[in-house]
């Protein structure tokens, strides 16, 4: 069977750290930043980075429509900034988003970098870095993990989101990458 091709949106942010995780989970990695490349991949990871910046770049480079069309058909995993981009509702400050997951997200809810921390999620060490908080989950959203009572890893249909970074841990693959590559395989 052909390996699922996972496109990591590479406008900015933590792109390369996903490569060994995706490969160890049985997928193929590609950094993508143009509409032609978006059409070629089987699933998307929207990586950690600065959500405000990514949003500006998507707009300034005219990529919104092409991404929205692809997101409607393919599995998408939004991480930290990426989670903010695919949430239905964003606060602190409010900003537009692709609305793929019926969740509400508050930006930088743990404060600035000084408040970033490391914890274990489902027995795997991950990092929260200027992380958003999922303040509300809508109907049908499956909560895969919580931290301090807040959902931190959620899924509905073809959309998955996490507020933490599994890609920075050097033990390949992370359970989250494994789960996502499986989602993409199922579809492909």
């Amino acid at each position: 069977m052909k390996k699922p091709l996972i496109g990591v949106l590479a406008l900015q942010g933590a792109v390369q750290p996903h490569k060994p995780h995706i490969e160890a989970a049985g997928g193929e990695f590609r950094a993508v930043k143009t509409p032609v490349q978006f059409d070629e991949v089987d699933g998307f990871i929207l990586p950690g980075g600065e959500s405000t910046t990514m949003l500006k770049l998507i707009d300034n480079f005219g990529l919104w429509d092409s991404l929205a069309r692809n997101f409607a058909e393919k599995p998408v995993w939004g991480i930290c900034a990426g989670c903010i981009l695919i949430a239905e509702k964003v606060s602190n400050p409010a900003q537009k988003s692709f609305g793929l997951l019926p969740i509400s997200v508050e930006r930088n809810a743990y404060g600035r970098q000084l408040e970033s921390h490391q914890v274990e999620i489902t027995g795997y060490p991950v990092s929260f870095i200027r992380a958003p908080v999922i303040t509300n989950t809508g109907e049908g959203v499956e909560v895969l993990a919580t931290h301090d009572g807040d959902p931190v890893w959620v899924k509905k249909g073809q959309a998955m989101a996490s507020t933490f970074h599994a890609e920075l841990t050097l033990d390949f693959p992370s359970p989250m990458h494994r789960a996502f590559v499986e989602m993409v395989k199922k579809r492909a």
């Binding site: 590479a10 406008l11 900015q12 942010g13 933590a14 792109v15 390369q16 750290p17 950690g48 980075g49 600065e50 910046t53 930290c80 900034a81 970098q113 970033s116 921390h117 490391q118 795997y124 060490p125 990092s127 870095i129 200027r130 970074h165 920075l168 841990t169 050097l170 033990d171 359970p175």
Partner: peptide, 23 residues
């Protein structure tokens, strides 16, 4: 997953990862 305790990129460097590919 392996049994050895995984090493992680230092958290302070983690934020720097988020700043990659930008201005």
């Amino acid at each position: 997953m392996t049994k050895t305790k995984p090493t992680s990129i230092n958290l302070k460097t983690g934020l720097a990862e988020m700043l990659k590919g930008g201005v």
